[in-house]
Design a protein around this nucleic acid. Structure first.
Lengths: 208, 208
DNA sequence: TGTAATGATGACCTATCGGTCAAGAATTGA
DNA sequence: TCAATTCTTGACCGATAGGTCATCATTACA
């Protein structure tokens, strides 16, 4: 089956290794030399297998979504809006403060800013963040429709809020905040969400 | 007084211009060519005036703190903890979504990740974020002492929470969120802070 | 008017960036 | 065994990164 000379490295493992490097240094901070050194291959092999640095990064983003950031897709499946919020924030804390991986979130610090040459990568990550926020908004809309959230709740603002805290967690983790510190912070944030989904709305029992 | 040939550009203006460039592109994303082109001087003049790219960045950080990020120092002077929180978040929204400046916060996206060479800059920004958070913590401690916050309140967690939302706002602004979207989000977040400074029994984190 | 001092200029430096390529090595199918 | 095919290797590419420097221009002071 495999015609020519067999590849001497595992592509999947290479993606995982590249993920670790990009996660640690960001897109531009990770050089070809960093990547090939970590993977243990030469430039030519990397380009034969992936095409370009940016194409490799695409593979890495896919992998990241399937593993590290999987907590988001899981969260929106939970039964109540409160469960969703808690799962996103708890998941973010866990993902960004694992002692076996770089701290922070690749989607956030991978290319928050960069040179003009790589603006496409920056825009790509911004788009991922944007679509994640939209997913939350849709989820909260359904929660309003089902009566899980009060009719006065603002799904848009709530989604933005959840994303804001989620990404803020990534920045804190990157700044050296510890896992337990961040969990305590999430305790506090969740306590504020017990009932206040509608800012100014007078208290109103759901029916009656 | 001024002995030799007079400088043909205004150093203060140059710092402001450099601030705009760094704010837009981050520390590494802003090249010497970007900076000198924007300022309108040659490399040699820049090095004669500032010493190095990093030294110029130091000047820029100073300027940023005195102007754009001044809202933080102002906020902690306000009479109540609630006022402080509101001022920080409102200030962050305003600072990160001004249509006349780049969106986002220089302290956050200036070097959230970078190459190994410039790790000192990354650490420096992280340190600024850390010390800002400490300032909030001290402020909230005083609020507990004075009875403004309940005795059960956790100044540490509250400071982390405020910083988390503040930095999350910067990420949202960088991702394209609008000023009004973010103000609506702050409405919601502030509503959650009306009285819940002491978290009730924290729910069980899934792991650790 | 001459000299010391300072800034401006543009050529130049080394290192490294992402990326390419020709040649050799290892495999399969005929 | 011999093509055909695929991967590996290391040298190499132009562009650009941050930074330096000799030379010249412009000023104040003696």
């Amino acid at each position: 089956m495999a015609r020519g000379r067999p590849r001497e490295f595992d592509v999947d493992e290479a993606v995982d290794t590249a993920l670790a490097v990009f996660w640690d240094r960001g897109y531009e901070g990770a050089t070809l030399a960093d990547l090939t050194d970590a993977i243990g291959i030469r430039r030519g092999s990397l380009y034969a297998a992936f095409g370009s640095k940016e194409a490799l990064f695409d593979q890495v983003l896919l992998r990241y979504g399937e593993t590290i950031a999987r907590y988001i897709a899981r969260a929106v499946l939970l039964p109540t809006a409160h469960d969703v919020v808690a799962a996103v924030w708890r998941g973010a804390v866990e993902a960004t403060t694992d002692e076996n991986t770089p701290h922070g979130c690749l989607i956030v610090h991978g290319a928050l800013s960069c040179s003009a040459d790589n603006d496409a990568v920056r825009a790509r990550l911004a788009e991922i963040r944007r679509s994640d926020r939209q997913r939350l908004r849709e989820r909260f809309r359904r929660a309003v429709d089902s009566g899980d959230l009060s009719a006065g709740a603002d799904p848009e603002a709530l989604a933005t809020y959840v994303a804001t805290v989620q990404h803020g967690i990534a920045v804190q983790a990157r700044s050296g905040a510890s896992r337990s510190e961040l969990h305590s912070m999430v305790d506090l944030a969740l306590a504020g969400l017990r009932r206040p989904e509608q800012p100014e709305q007078p208290e109103q029992p759901e029916r009656s």
